[in-house]
Write a protein that binds this DNA or RNA. Structure first.
Length: 554
RNA sequence: GCGCCUGUAGCUCAGUCGGACAGAGCAACGGACUUCUAAUCCGUAGGUCGCACGUUCGAAUCGUGCCAGGCGCGCCA
């Protein structure tokens, strides 16, 4: 990568300038090379001289001159350097130095830009994990897409990634679900029932009740209430989970494993985790309850793990779950939660620190809430009345590609306004089509090239003829792909890839409108075809990373 | 009251490790289709980066204090 080579050259230049007596100190700052916003400032610039001014006790411009004089560009990638402003060194790269990236893209194809950052380490990304007590809503959709894409990014960057869904199938909510269904069953059987306010109100409960009667038989209702509720609970959770699976599949999200909370209890894992902490002296008894000393690990206060009534808390099973994750051999564990759970982060982090794990081994990604709008007006979401727009409604209406792309064009910690009408619009309000259109346009050109001109393959001939400014800009953008993906993976910010693709698409459309690829001159047609096929590969790879399709025609 | 997130153009949002003159799309206005797909392109206009102070060669970015919106502060999940 050109940037890396420049960094090395700078460091070498600084050393030889010091040896030649032009610099006073061998203490150099960390070299930072970045791309200036303005093209007139060159392809790359460094603040090396300014950052080193205090150590050198010299004016920045003097330092910059010394370094510039000692630059050894034996590969010949630099056209010229300039010293500008308070002491920036600006580099102008020889245009032909950009061209090799095209061949690299063609050669490496799907794996272009794949970095070995992860070094084969095992990572688990746990996301969605919605309670199986009702349909998914749009907020779950956001978490699903962010989690899925973070997993893809990490996987591309050399981690061994598993996607997991944690099923909260133990505890009171499931019991409430069972009771809700049971009562609806009785109601359907003609009995007068009082339906409590804290039960699940939605119409889907009726649907489940109907099929429960059909499948389990009316005899179910003759058992004791406790037994019947239990049957209803398990049946309902199973049905809802089935629907959740379908909803996620529709969004292009698939999990490697579905982990049951109930199994943690059944296998004694919760007790095991608590005694593990107890042995470390981190569990104590107070007010007839048992507490974990979370405050010793940065949490505000200690937290109850076993209640006065002898039942464990959700926190206890979560500790057991995370302990189990590490026991399964995951080096890093990533949880994607809705922002409404952020109060929970510290206590779980505390528990994980208590397990002896470092902060780098656990990360919670919080996704902010989604406001669902239609034509700028909030869509009413009354959970109490059981009347709300589900995730399925949304994907059915706007489609997977648009839904995913919209979730990924915001930083996940920014609240998101999701407007159904905008999501359906096939205009630039909806950049997914803008990006996909590049792919389709290139397919169309290629089709024409093969069918009408008998061209068989894109070959790297005459690339030095790619010297239009729009061509150089496009190729430079292609060269940015590896770094974009690496940074997105490292920071777990998938939106960076989406923005990268929009920028690439803009450069391509601008190029397309100004220059023809298929010309009467084969000498110019060949390299241009080679270039746009590289663009197409990056678009395809990038969209694929985001779980968005790359259509041949639109 | 305490904690977390957010605040950038009329709207929706980017802005990397503190870098040079603040970025895109939409909306507005004016242009470009006998051409490889106009789901496109070109141009114009649009800013107190919530406010104030501080840190320094340099702040949308870091620190402190305010303001506004969202969320959270259970022996709920």
């Amino acid at each position: 990568m050109i940037k890396q080579r420049l960094k090395q050259m700078l460091l070498d230049a600084a050393r030889s300038a010091y040896e030649a007596g032009r610099l006073l100190s061998p203490d150099f700052p960390e070299t930072s090379v970045e791309e200036p916003k303005i093209e007139a400032h060159g392809d790359f610039a460094t603040n090396f001289a300014m950052a080193g001014a205090s150590a050198q006790k010299m004016p920045p411009r003097k330092i910059a001159e010394a370094i510039a004089d000692h630059l050894d560009d034996h590969e010949g990638i630099i056209e010229k350097t300039e010293i500008a402003g308070p002491g920036f060194i600006n580099f102008f790269i020889r245009q032909t130095a950009w061209l090799p990236v095209l061949k690299e893209i063609h050669d490496k194809d799907h794996s272009f830009g794949a970095a070995g950052l992860g070094d084969g380490k095992k990572v688990q990304v746990e996301f969605v994990s919605a309670n199986p007590t009702g349909p998914l809503h749009i907020g779950h959709g956001r978490g699903a897409v962010v989690g899925d894409t973070v997993a893809s990014l990490l996987s591309f960057c050399g981690y061994r990634v598993d996607r997991e869904y944690y099923i909260n199938d133990a505890g009171r909510q499931i019991h409430t679900l069972g009771k809700s269904v049971y009562l609806r069953c009785l109601e359907l059987g003609g009995k007068e029932v009082e339906f409590p306010e804290d039960a699940y109100q939605g119409d889907y409960i009726y649907e489940i009740a109907k099929s429960a009667i059909a499948e389990k038989g009316p005899g179910m209702l003759e058992k004791s209430e406790q037994e019947a509720v239990e049957i209803c609970a398990r049946y309902a959770a199973g049905q809802i989970l089935k629907d959740i699976r379908v909803d996620l599949e529709n969004l292009g999200v698939r999990f490697d494993s579905w982990f049951s909370e109930q199994k943690l209890y059944d296998s004694g894992r919760v007790d095991k985790a608590l005694s593990f902490l107890e042995k470390k002296g981190l569990i104590y008894e107070k007010d007839d309850a048992r507490w974990f000393a979370a405050s010793r690990f940065g949490d505000e206060k200690d937290r109850v793990v076993v209640r006065k009534n002898g039942q464990t808390t959700y926190f206890a099973s979560d500790i057991a779950y995370h302990l189990e994750k590490y026991e399964r051999g995951y080096d890093r564990v990533i949880d994607v939660w809705g922002a409404d759970h952020h109060g929970y982060v510290q206590r779980l982090s505390a528990a994980i620190t208590a397990m002896g794990k470092s902060s780098g081994q656990f990360r919670v990604i919080l996704t902010q809430l989604v406001n669902l709008l239609r034509k700028g007006r909030p869509v009413s979401m009354s959970t109490r009345a059981g009347r709300f727009v589900t995730l399925r409604d949304v994907t059915d209406e706007v489609g997977r590609d648009a839904a995913r792309f919209i979730f990924l064009t915001r930083h996940h910690e920014s609240p998101l306004d999701f407007d159904l009408e905008v999501a359906k619009a096939k205009t630039n309000d909806n950049p997914v089509y803008y990006v996909q259109y590049v792919h389709a346009r290139i397919s169309s050109i290629w089709k024409k090239a093969t069918e009408e001109r008998g061209i068989q393959a894109a070959l790297p001939n005459g690339l030095e003829l790619l010297c239009e400014p729009e061509e150089i800009r496009l190729i430079k953008q292609l060269a940015r792909y590896p770094e974009t993906v690496a940074v997105a993976a490292e920071l777990m910010e998938p939106h960076r890839v989406a923005y990268y693709l929009m920028d690439l698409a803009a450069l391509f459309h601008a190029y397309y409108n100004k220059h023809r690829v298929l010309t009467d001159d084969p000498n110019i047609t060949e390299p241009r075809l080679y270039m746009i096929m590289a663009v197409q590969k990056i678009i395809r790879n990038g969209l694929g990373m985001l779980g968005v399709s790359a259509p041949e025609t639109m």
